[in-house]
């Protein structure tokens, strides 16, 4: 085994590793999407966030416009506060927009559904650090069943 051939094969090994890293970075971990440029922050208070997690998607009509940056509990009224970081390119939503926590599919992940509101005179756009006023909580299956049984009981 001469020196040239050894070094050639080590070179092939290195190139294969680079190929594996590229596959993992671009196709598996989707690195290009996660390091998505400039963002601005919005806050939303929910009564119940269900199974929402950090890094869950924020979607408008199915298109991802940002991610959940963090989830914390408000110290005064003990309601969950969700911090959303939205891509700067989707920068102009009116103040009347609303957010709700939705589930993709029957058993899928939960995400934040964002419904842009109507903009007319006198309604400003949402800016960095604003709180969204109109929020709908996650659907909790147990609550739903409880309500259903309660309604059935009161009908009879």
């Amino acid at each position: 085994m001469n020196k040239y051939k050894t070094e050639l094969l080590v070179g092939v090994f290195v190139v294969m590793t680079v190929g594996a890293v590229l596959l993992l970075a671009l196709n598996v971990a989707n690195k290009s999407m996660t390091s998505d440029g400039d963002t601005y922050t919005l806050y939303a208070k929910f009564d119940n966030i269900g199974g929402l997690k950090e890094r869950s998607a924020v979607k408008v009509g199915g298109v991802t416009i940002g991610r959940v940056a963090s989830i914390s509990l408000d110290k005064e009224d003990y309601t969950p506060v969700v911090k959303l970081s939205i891509n700067q390119q989707y920068g102009e939503f009116p103040e009347t927009s609303s957010v709700s926590i939705l589930t993709s599919g029957l058993l899928g992940e939960q995400y934040v559904g964002f419904q842009p509101g109507f903009s007319f005179d006198g309604v400003a756009n949402l800016e960095d650090g604003d709180y969204l006023q109109d929020t709908k909580s996650a659907l909790v299956l147990e609550d739903l069943i409880g309500q259903f049984l309660f309604n059935r009981g009161s009908e009879e």
Binding site: N27, V28, A29, N30, K31, M33, T34, R55, E109
Partner: peptide
């Protein structure tokens, strides 16, 4: 789904 789940 792999891309949205796997974190670099």
């Amino acid at each position: 789904i792999m891309q949205s789940t796997v974190d670099w």
